[in-house]
Simulated assay, not measured.
Amino acid sequence: MTPPPARYATAATPPGPFTVVVTTGPDGGDVVLASGWTDDVGALLPVVHRSLRPNWVEHVDRLPVLDAVDAFFAGDVTAIDDVPVRQRSGPFLEDAWEVLRTVPAGEPDTYAAFAARCGRPAAVRAAANACARNAAALFVPCHRVLGSGGGLGGFRWGTAVKAQLLEHEARHAPVAAA
């Protein structure tokens, strides 16, 4: 089955230009296939699973999903939580990406804690691989996973972007009820 065409748009964010690639979901709304801190859509398409990769993409000036990105950077760090995302891989990676969406803003996990959250505490490298292979940066918040020693670890879009995101979330994270 041939994937439907996709659309993309780029918005200015504090860490730099942020591009998002979307396709149409079953309900007619947009579903994120890939996103990241670049203004080059060509840097995003290779990370989309081949079964989801569009044959072509059309540039548009604005996508509704960018409203959630704007709200996130305006201080509503939960605005990205319900944005639909579609990624495909093996069962562990797909499950891990869903689990990543449960890591609260302002409360980052270590790779070891993330592996345990995924139900495989010994699979620290697999958990790190799930972060590295995540195509939908920000919406699947792999930036919320730190090295076991508390260091930043890696991030496809650079550790400076990761640090800026974590600092922003720490400042704006919702306060948990006591």
Rank of each mutant, 00 (worst) to 15 (best):
V31R: 13
S89A: 15
V145Y: 06
R117F: 04
A96V: 04
D67G: 05
V175M: 08
N55E: 14
L100G: 15
P121D: 06
A177M: 05
A112Y: 02
G150M: 06
D109C: 15
H143T: 02
R156N: 07
P14K: 11
L45T: 07
G25A: 14
Y111E: 13
Q164M: 12
C131W: 00
T13D: 01
R125F: 00
V161Y: 13
V48C: 06
F114P: 15
Q164C: 04
A170D: 08
A34Y: 09
S51M: 11
A112V: 00
A126H: 03
S35W: 07
V124I: 15
P14Q: 08
D81Q: 12
V47K: 02
T23E: 15
A130G: 15
P64I: 11
A9P: 00
A176P: 00
D82K: 06
S148Y: 00
A6W: 13
D30M: 04
V47H: 07
A126F: 00
R88T: 14
G28K: 13
V124L: 03
L52C: 06
G149V: 01
M1E: 10
G149H: 05
A74C: 08
T13R: 03
V20R: 07
L66I: 06
P91R: 08
P64F: 03
S35D: 06
A135H: 03
A11K: 02
V47N: 02
T19S: 15
R117D: 09
G75E: 03
V31H: 13
F114T: 13
V31G: 11
Q87N: 11
N55W: 07
A43Q: 15
D82A: 14
R156T: 08
G16I: 07
